[in-house]
Each structure stands twice: as structure tokens, then as C-alpha cells.
């Protein structure tokens, strides 16, 4: 006999296991981080000698790097359950199915934040950016955007898993859905890097980020069970 673990505790158990596996294995992680760094480096080659990259372009490059990293991270996270049929084990556990989505979302969020610890200095060095905005506000915008990316990534990662060419499928599905969130993230990023806000004001973009966070979180909670349980 046992007690059914709560939604949150199950999510933490799954998230902790995923982080142990990803950080322990390292290979998938290195690929995701290196891809992001490469994107930033390659874009840095596009500017001529003496030219500066605008704050908005730098923020866009930062988020494109993050987005590709996100695809690899969530593909890796869901691939962990495809080696020996562990997905069936998760489905049979008494915990709510959404705890899988949340656990993998939390693990993915931590991985994204770790990746951005590398990407931020890379943007500063390769794209010659000096952040002018408030650090706390910049970090808050990054964190809030990452919450939305993780919520959507965890939901759509489950959808792409088990399919042929899952990385490309995930990219095709996820990029259009994330566009509004990314536009807002780029605008707030541009503000942080000191280029000013291109259109509208920062507060409105922040509200858009929070609205999409709420949307993706709700979609994850509502839809994950159907997606993850529907391939039998």
C-alpha cells in the first residue's frame, strides 16, 4: 500500500530525475548549448568591420539561440522515456499525468536558464552589446519568457516524441506558436540592452509575455493528458 503523491511532488520527482539524467549524460546538453553559441557567433560574422549590431537585432539573435536550444532540450527530455518504454511506467504511476508535463517543464526551464548564462555573455562579447537597462528587470523578462517557452516546449515536446524527424516536427509546430511571445521578448530584450523600445512601451510587452505564459500554462494543464496518453 502507498499514498498517491501530490501533483507537485510527482512533478519534482520527475524533474529531478530528468536533470540528473541530462546533466549526468552531458552530450545532449552540450549539443544544445553549442548550437545556441554557434548561432550567436555566426550572426556576429554578418556585421562589417566597425559596424555595431542594434540592440533589437542582438535581442532577436539571443532569443533565436534560446529557441533552438529549447527544441533540443525538450526533445532530449522526452527521449529519456523512449529508451526502455519508461513512458508506460509514467502513465501507470498514480500521479496525475500533468505532473509529467510540469516536471519536464521545470527541468527544461532550468536547462534554458543554464544555457542563457552562456548566451548572455556571448551576446555581449560577439555582438558587442553593453546592457543599459535595469538588470533585475532584464532578468525578470528573461525568466518570464522562459516560463512560457518551457510550458509550450513541454507540451509540444510530448507531441513530437516518438515521431520520425521529431526535432524538425517540434520546430515546425513550436516556432509559429511562440512568435508573439518572442516578439515581446525581443522588445523587452532590446529595452534591456539599451536600444530603447521600438514600438509600444515596455510594460505592455511584459504584459503580453505574462498573458502568453498564462495561455501556455493553461494549455499544458488541459491538453497534456490527451497528448501524452494518446499514442497507444
Amino acid at each position: 500500500m502507498s499514498s498517491t503523491p501530490s501533483f507537485l511532488s510527482s512533478a519534482l520527482i520527475i524533474g529531478r530525475k530528468d536533470l540528473t539524467l541530462l546533466l549526468g549524460r552531458g552530450t545532449g546538453l552540450a549539443q544544445a548549448f553549442l548550437l545556441g553559441l554557434l548561432i550567436i557567433f555566426i550572426f556576429s560574422l554578418s556585421r562589417g568591420i566597425g559596424e555595431t549590431v542594434s540592440a533589437q537585432a542582438a535581442a532577436a539573435i539571443f532569443w533565436v539561440a534560446t529557441l533552438f536550444c529549447q527544441v533540443l532540450v525538450f526533445t532530449s527530455l522526452y527521449a529519456l522515456e523512449e529508451v526502455n518504454g519508461q513512458r508506460q511506467g509514467l502513465l501507470l504511476a498514480p500521479a496525475p499525468l500533468q505532473s509529467i508535463w510540469l516536471g519536464k517543464g521545470l527541468a527544461g526551464l532550468i536547462m534554458l536558464l543554464l544555457a542563457q548564462l552562456l548566451f548572455l555573455p556571448a551576446v555581449a562579447v560577439f555582438l558587442d552589446q553593453e546592457p543599459q537597462g535595469t538588470l533585475m528587470r532584464g532578468l525578470l523578462c528573461i525568466l518570464l519568457t522562459d516560463v512560457g517557452l518551457a510550458a509550450a516546449g513541454s507540451l509540444l515536446g510530448a507531441l513530437a516524441q516518438g515521431q520520425a524527424a521529431r526535432e524538425s516536427l517540434l520546430s515546425i509546430v513550436i516556432f509559429p506558436l511562440l512568435l508573439p511571445l518572442l516578439l515581446a521578448a525581443i522588445s523587452t530584450g532590446a529595452e534591456f540592452l539599451g536600444g530603447g523600445v521600438p514600438s509600444g512601451d515596455g510594460e505592455n510587452w511584459l504584459r503580453i509575455i505574462m498573458a502568453f505564459d498564462a495561455l501556455f500554462l493553461a494549455a499544458g494543464l488541459l491538453l497534456f493528458g490527451f497528448i501524452y496518453n494518446s499514442r497507444e
Binding site: M1, S2, T4, K17, T20, N84, Q86, G89
Partner: peptide
Amino acid sequence: PGAQIGYMGHQTFIYPQL
């Protein structure tokens, strides 16, 4: 209440890295 189902299929549910 609280009882479990033990399912042993063709796959082992084992994480090789753990």
C-alpha cells in the same frame, strides 16, 4: 485505496544512466 498495479511488459522501464 492506495493499492497499485504492477505491470511488467516487454520493456524494462529502466533508465540506463541511473
